[in-house]
């Protein structure tokens, strides 16, 4: 950060006092607690800004308690095109400065290769337009860690859906080849839950080892299927979207082949999630999981609101003991 601790505390104290938050000054003491943490450059490729919007929905009982706490007190987010103050040359100079040292590269959005990447030009440097493709090729090899945030960056996602008009690729498709040979950590989701993003960054900053699955997703976050955590496993099957409190597998729910903790973590401060939890105050969204954290979303799960889609059993997906509670086959094996 380019500010002294004294200057920053003065600003925070002023703001907090004016807000009547003097008692909340404790957390502010964490400011610059670890001035050695690497800064973060957040690039946006072909995407919708939804991952950033989701990050801004962060809310937690422990630090960082929200996105303001995250940005002010926890991480050093030097470049983020939606959130940053600087514009133009002043902003791209930050990329030059930060990439000269140790940093974490976060990419939101897919990387288009059509027309040499020019369907997604993200800034100019020294008068030369820079595509998302060339930015990743330049910056990923310099980064201490590369994080693909969202399903577009992780697997191609919506931007790479058939017929993939812009030849949009996952970040890993660009970086896991010679001469880069870099495997990013993937934090998929369309959008990803803010907790998933923050958990991963926090563990990288703390230099904790992160266990990854075959799709390079943290197993702590993507270790079990949505179905295996769903309150509707034994509920009657829905006949239409007008039904409530039913299992929507019969309408095309992809919870059985989707790895994520949405049913237990829930979304937006716990108010709901795509399928919804059966409860005394209602049954939530009553919609379907569409597999948005998976490699192959959306094409392998389409038509989305249909059981016609034959989504593959992905590598790493094995019937687990608890599945047999609902899926007894004739010989005691696994069956729908």
């Amino acid at each position: 950060m380019k500010v002294t601790r004294r200057e920053f505390m003065k600003y925070c104290t002023l703001s907090a006092a004016a807000l009547g938050l003097t008692s909340a000054l404790g957390p502010l003491e964490r400011v610059l607690a670890n001035p050695g943490s690497p800064p973060i450059l957040w690039l946006k490729g072909a995407g919708c800004t939804g991952c950033t919007v989701s990050l801004a929905n962060l809310i937690s009982g422990s630090a960082p308690v929200d996105v303001a706490d995250l940005l002010i007190n926890t991480i050093d987010l030097e470049y983020h095109p939606t959130l940053m103050g600087a514009a133009g040359d002043a902003s791209t100079q930050i990329i030059n400065d930060v990439s000269a040292g140790t940093f974490i590269l976060v990419v939101e959005g897919a990387i288009p290769k059509k027309f040499n990447g020019t369907t997604c030009t993200i800034y100019e440097q020294d008068g030369i337009p820079v595509t998302a493709l060339s930015a990743v090729q330049t910056l990923a090899p310099l980064a201490a860690h590369v994080l693909s945030v969202g399903t577009c960056a992780s697997f191609g996602g919506i931007a790479g859906a058939s017929p993939n008009p812009t030849i949009a690729k996952a970040v890993s498709d660009i970086t896991n080849v010679d001469p880069y040979n870099i495997e990013p950590i993937n934090i998929p989701g369309c959008p990803p839950h803010p907790d998933w993003i923050v958990w991963t960054i926090a563990n990288l900053l703390a230099e904790n080892p992160i266990d990854l699955d075959v799709y390079n997703r943290p197993t702590a976050l993507y270790g079990a299927t949505v179905h295996s955590q769903c309150s509707r496993q034994t509920a009657p099957r829905a006949n239409s979207l007008n039904d409530t409190g039913c299992c929507t597998n019969s309408l095309g729910c992809k919870g059985r082949m989707t790895f994520a903790d949405c049913p237990t973590r829930k979304w937006n401060n716990g108010v709901n999630w795509c399928v919804g939890t059966i409860g005394p105050d209602g049954n939530g969204a009553d919609s379907l999981c569409q597999g948005c954290t998976e490699n192959g979303f959306p094409d392998e799960f389409a038509p989305l609101f249909s059981t016609m889609a034959v989504a593959p059993m992905h590598d790493g997906f094995e019937p687990q003991n608890h599945c047999l509670g609902c899926h007894h086959g004739p010989e005691g094996g696994f069956e729908d």
Binding site: G50, V53, S54, N57, I59, C190, P191, L241, N242, T244, W267, N268, N269, V271, N272, W273, C274, G276, D281, G282, N283, G284, A285, D286, S287, L288, Q290, F305
Partner: peptide, 27 residues
């Protein structure tokens, strides 16, 4: 955004908007 998710299912990109109506049944 949380207010939107109460009926929308989640934000951003709420799953409750469907051709023919809406999936969430308000209580």
């Amino acid at each position: 955004q949380e207010m939107a998710a109460i009926f929308g299912g989640r934000m951003p990109s709420p799953p409750a908007f469907q051709a023919g109506g809406f999936t969430t049944k308000p209580t």
